[in-house]
């Protein structure tokens, strides 16, 4: 079963993306599609691996979200086939299996990110939007800039409004990740994954403390805050 929908053009914003969702649980897919469309994206749905493989082949999507376990052809095989055919579209794998080795097989098959069920919708949205951004050329960037905040990746220096800010190595990496995803929401788990390379569920919000320390260094003495808390989702660094 396949259906496609167009979002009203007037609602389309600059960051509007085309997203393919391959998920066999129709109810879960319904909620996801609704959420993605409400966030301003165009979302198509396939309920089995073979239809999904077909739809994703021409590479017209910005991000594809693939459930690992699908009737017929499984998600891993779909991704492997795409990759073998040269389809480079970023893929987020959804899985009911949260184990580390499942994550590894998923990423090895050509997936770009991995999200274990159950997940919060805000987490999925943040990751999908993060993946779509990833394809934009940023390869040679050696300097990141958000407003008057500048991060020099070669000299390992941070300045705001020309003023030097001293950062610990981990704070530097935290800021680097946030700035690479400037304007996007990054969740706490994304930060733990990318800045610390740990995938477990910390029982307390250890990340919040690190963010507030970073905030103390880059925002405290300035008029406009750059590092924002997005309620119920995570953090975002942006101008205004």
């Amino acid at each position: 079963m396949t259906y496609q929908t167009q979002v009203n053009p007037s609602e389309q914003s600059q960051t509007n993306m085309r997203i393919l969702l391959i998920e066999d649980d129709l109810q879960a897919a319904g909620f996801l599609l609704k959420g993605l469309r409400e966030a301003g994206h165009v979302a198509d749905h396939a309920s089995n691996g073979d239809d999904g493989l077909e739809m994703g082949r021409d590479g017209t999507y910005d991000v594809m979200v693939v459930d690992r376990m699908l009737p017929g052809r499984n998600g891993i095989s779909v991704i492997e086939t795409w990759r073998a055919e040269g389809v480079r579209t970023p893929v987020l794998i959804l899985s009911a299996l949260g184990e580390v080795d499942d994550r590894v097989t998923g990423l090895r098959a050509g997936g770009d990110d991995y999200l274990a069920k159950p997940y919060a919708f805000s987490e999925l949205l943040a990751r999908v939007e993060g993946l779509a951004r990833r394809v934009e050329p940023e390869a040679a960037a050696t300097k990141l800039q958000v407003g008057d905040l500048e991060l020099d990746l070669l000299a390992r220096k941070c300045t705001r409004a020309g003023e030097n800010i001293l950062l610990q190595p981990r704070e530097f990496r935290l800021l680097e990740y946030l700035m690479k995803n400037a304007g996007q929401v990054v969740t706490r788990t994304m930060l733990l994954e990318h800045v610390w390379d740990y995938h477990f569920d910390p029982q307390t919000n250890v990340i919040d403390v690190h963010i507030s320390r970073l905030r103390g260094k880059i925002d405290k003495n300035f008029d406009t805050p750059l590092l924002h808390t997005v309620r119920g989702a995570g953090y975002s660094i942006r101008e205004g």
Binding site: Y198, T204, V206, V209, H210
Partner: peptide, 9 residues
């Protein structure tokens, strides 16, 4: 790493 992660907390 875990020590450094929890230290601020």
């Amino acid at each position: 790493e875990i020590g450094e992660l929890y230290e601020p907390l």
